[in-house]
Design a protein around this nucleic acid. Structure first.
Lengths: 237, 237
DNA sequence: CTACTATTGTGTACTATTTACACGTTTAAT
DNA sequence: ATTAAACGTGTAAATAGTACACAATAGTAG
């Protein structure tokens, strides 16, 4: 080993996951009430430590899988937090990922086993360490990203109606959107395929159910097309 | 110490800095030709290891300062790279920052001492480890960010002309912009203050020199205003 | 010192996009 | 059958973006 490396310190590398969900009304976070030390009894994000033979992304996926039973979700690295005293037990840097999941797909048993629950962003309790800061950064990133790329769909079930999609965007940006303009805008992207089926939930007129046009969707995600740039104004609200 | 922490591994945390500059013609990177091991003689980004009592951001700033003699530059965390075998010597994760500096302000002695040079993005040599990937991510981020926030100014001297600013944007996005529309667009942001002075470089008609309206600039950076959203199309080119 | 060239500064018409707003249709409950 | 709530589609006005034209300035060549 090179002398260059010899004198440097080795420290703990944690991973924390911010897991967003949407229940049709408000944006939710999957948080755990800790039944282990340190900070027993307090609320925190789901986390863990990096293993020896594990890439960062793999580790984040493992933690997400353990908690939710979900794999192949939208998972993106957010930021690395490394203030000296952020973890009072031992110097630890935390690589934070955020994930978008469809609440309906979750594994309830796994979630209960971890003492986790879905909590509305607005009602969330104070979290341990710098986890509140992590959530704030994640929300900003979600707004940033969802304005330019159609990642919102990751939060919805396979089939969804236009009003559902609109409610989601309104929840993300904490704003009201014009139903008619929203509809035209979304339809112009060619991202939705009508299924012919009708919504079963709505009490009055039932909306048409759509699925994602996955081919177009991939193009948008790859960045060949941008989505709703006019929302960029709301990114940092 | 908690048993929870006991079994986890501790690993090396490196920092690498991607330093962008602009010489009036093309975007440049400050790269070092390594006169030390490992990978002696090859090109790489400027990097180092995290110290015990150092925040991540401080460490990145230290590395940047050591190389360029510059402080208080634009410095933003980019991404953390942690593939298992990214560093063949020992498992290391690298927290990567990117910085925008005004080439004219640099400390030439410090740069020479580190065997560093400014290299055009287009002519850059192959870099060690995963540094090429880091640069690719940084360039994408720069394009993303510069379309929505006026960070480009960080690359220019205190006083600059409109044509200089335009050349910068053309370099970042590898595109041609209409001079007249660009001018109107920039002026509408109210970000520039005319100094009355004239350019000294230009051979023919000398353009007016501007400085940043720092008050407006801060508002834009804070995200209260967005900059050139129509460029978002070019973000991922 | 005049004509020429390259580059800067400002203006205007045209097109596309966004926004604001209206009316008819469907579903279920009374 | 009537009513209320929510869906679906349309259109005009305002805003923003694009394409293009011409005059002014500073150096250079003859």
């Amino acid at each position: 080993m090179s002398a260059y490396y010899q004198h440097s310190i080795r420290i703990l590398v944690a991973l924390d996951c911010i897991i967003f969900g949407f229940d049709g009304e408000s944006l939710k976070l999957l948080l755990i009430k800790r039944d282990f030390e340190p900070e027993y009894g307090k609320w925190s994000l789901m986390g863990g430590f990096l293993n020896q033979d594990e890439d960062l992304e793999m580790a984040a996926g493992r933690i997400l899988y353990n908690l939710t039973g979900l794999q192949h979700n939208y998972l993106e690295q957010l930021h690395t937090f490394g203030t000296v005293n952020r973890d009072p037990v031992e110097r630890t840097i935390s690589v934070v990922y955020y994930s978008l999941v469809n609440i309906a797909d979750q594994d309830i048993t796994a979630i209960k086993a971890h003492n986790a629950s879905w909590i509305s962003l607005d009602d969330r309790p104070r979290l341990i360490f710098d986890h509140d800061q992590m959530v704030a950064v994640a929300l900003r990133r979600l707004r940033y990203k969802a304005a330019l790329h159609p990642i919102g769909f990751e939060l919805l079930p396979e089939k969804f109606t236009l009003p559902q999609l609109q409610k989601l965007y309104e929840a993300i940006y904490a704003t009201q959107l014009d139903r008619r303009n929203f509809s035209r805008k979304i339809m112009a992207t060619d991202l939705l395929l009508g299924t012919g089926e009708k919504d079963t939930i709505s009490v009055t007129k039932k909306g048409q159910l759509f699925t994602l046009n996955t081919e177009k969707y991939r193009k948008y995600l790859a960045g060949d097309l941008t989505f709703m740039p006019e929302l960029t104004e709301l990114m940092t609200l």
